[in-house]
């Protein structure tokens, strides 16, 4: 075994982000195999991971995991720098911005489901903006908006519930153990 002369020392942060990004990439590859009635409609299962990372480690890590997932996921599916890649990227950036705002909603009343729904709608908004302005510069695209909105509603809800389920058994800090 030859050792590479260049050695990067990955920090614990890097390892953690890589682990979550790997899970998100796996989910996005899996869902690429699920047939969908309308092109562009996807469950967005990888967003479950983004939500979990957001809740556990904050927005910076969520951005890392989400963007790594977009780049590596598109490489694996063979869509890197294809139109689909830019649509994913636009959707991911829009939903990250929305999540950056939504995470400041009072946690007492708003949970992962709210964040997921808001992110899902921001996702389709970002995608449609790029698609309308660049890829399909025609208003005919607007015909698809209701279907995208319906998909965002259903999958946003489902992903939010899944993220809430995943976040529930998270180990709590010691000082909170006394609370019911």
């Amino acid at each position: 075994m030859t050792l590479s002369p260049i050695e990067l020392a990955p920090s614990a942060d890097d390892h953690r982000i890589a682990r979550y990004a790997a899970a998100a990439i796996a989910l996005s590859v899996v869902e690429a195999a699920i047939p969908m009635p309308l092109p562009g409609v996807k469950p967005g299962l990888a967003n479950i991971i983004t939500l979990v990372v957001l809740a556990r480690y904050g927005w910076r890590d969520a951005v890392w995991v989400s963007l790594l997932r977009v780049v590596a996921g598109s490489l694996l599916v063979g869509q890197f720098l294809a139109p689909g890649f830019f649509l994913s990227l636009a959707g991911a950036l829009a939903s990250l911005v929305a999540l950056g705002c939504a995470m400041h909603l009072p946690g007492r009343w708003f949970g992962p489901v709210s964040q997921s729904l808001i992110a899902a709608f921001a996702h389709i908004a970002g995608q449609l903006a790029v698609a309308r302005l660049w890829l399909v510069p025609h208003d005919g695209l607007l015909y698809l908006v209701p279907f995208f909105a319906l998909a965002a509603l259903l999958f946003g809800l489902a992903n939010g519930l899944a993220a809430a389920q995943l976040l529930e058994p998270a180990p709590q800090p010691k000082e909170n153990l006394g609370h019911p």
């Binding site: 489901v113 909105a149 965002a152």
Partner: peptide, 20 residues
């Protein structure tokens, strides 16, 4: 799964359902 739905979640869900 209903226990994950906080009051604000219902509000967001209903709002976005109305938009849809």
């Amino acid at each position: 799964f209903l226990r994950f739905m906080k009051p604000g979640d219902w509000a967001v869900l209903l709002l976005l359902a109305a938009v849809t």
